[in-house]
Design a protein around this nucleic acid. Structure first.
Length: 286
DNA sequence: GCGGCAA
């Protein structure tokens, strides 16, 4: 039970709930819990009926993809709607439309290496696709609130860093068409313009710009987000030249560890050779 | 008063 309790006794334990929402539709109750643990943030979506409960875990960077895909199924005529698969990290999410005597539904199932496949089923609703729209709207709210969580309380009025064109394609995973048979005329997935998405590039609103210097260079660190998720941009500025790398936050920890590795193996060079074989010797008297 | 999925 997710309820609102606080933390918890049972399994899983230390994860912090950042945003909790529920959606009741027909006789199902969907729980949306944006949670955080040392490995990062994720959205847990549970479907609960009287008899069953089923949960999928979506990495934060996947929320916008879920938004796009729900919009795709909302906006695509039934006979043109393909099944889709969305790859995120090590997981694959499968989106399929189904229909039975109860009506149409969208089946979203998660396949990950360790766990068994788990599935939630979102009814389209009786008069159109209002179930999917309601679900989509909750995702929108969560995505919105999730991006606000990066704002620090006492924002200083920092100079926004210069904007860089064309960041958006560099971040995030892609999804590919699933097992649809005919690959129709270029009308694949109009992912990027299905709905009013949050600003393409919110860099600068975050109040978290940092700068370091090394030799003659400056490096700017800026958090940003676009429709693919959150990222850290590291820009090197030397004279009039600037270049950047865009690092999805999902890779930040690895990046940190990698830097740490090189700090370790180059430490001796920086601090003067020392170690088991070479030791520092007091400077000769002079 | 639902009920799908998929093991």
């Amino acid at each position: 039970m997710e309820g609102g309790g606080g933390g918890g006794g049972g399994g899983g334990g230390a994860d912090v709930e950042l945003v909790c929402k529920t959606l009741q539709f027909e006789h199902k109750l969907f729980y949306f819990d944006l949670k955080e643990n040392p490995r990062g943030r994720y959205l847990k979506i549970s479907e609960k009926t009287a008899a069953t409960r089923s949960t999928i875990i979506v990495p934060v960077a996947g929320i916008v993809w879920f938004l796009d895909l729900f919009n795709y199924y909302i906006g695509t005529d039934e006979r043109d709607a393909f099944s889709k698969e969305l790859k995120l990290d090590t997981k694959v999410f499968y989106f399929d439309i189904g229909e039975n005597k109860r009506g149409r539904f969208l089946k979203v199932s998660e396949a990950s290496v360790n766990r068994n496949r788990s599935t939630i089923i979102v009814p389209a609703g009786s008069s159109g696709e209002e179930g999917w729209e309601a679900f989509r709207n909750v995702l929108l709210e969560i995505n919105d609130e999730a991006s606000r969580l990066y704002i620090v309380p006492n924002q200083q009025h920092l100079e926004p860093p210069e904007r860089l064109p064309g960041l958006s394609d560099d971040v995030g995973a892609g999804f590919i068409s699933g097992h649809g048979s005919q690959s129709a005329s270029g009308s694949e997935l109009p992912v990027d313009r299905l709905v009013e998405l949050p600003p393409q590039d919110e860099v600068g609103g975050m109040g978290m710009s940092k700068v370091i210097r090394a030799d003659q260079k400056k490096f700017f660190f800026d958090l940003g987000s676009n429709n693919r998720g959150h990222f850290l941009r590291i820009s090197e500025v030397a004279g009039a030249d600037r270049s950047s790398i865009i690092l999805p936050l999902s890779g930040l920890k690895q990046f940190h560890e990698m830097i740490g590795h090189f700090v370790d193996i180059t430490k001796d060079r920086l601090e003067g050779m020392s170690g088991p074989n070479v030791r520092n010797v007091e400077p000769a008297q002079r």
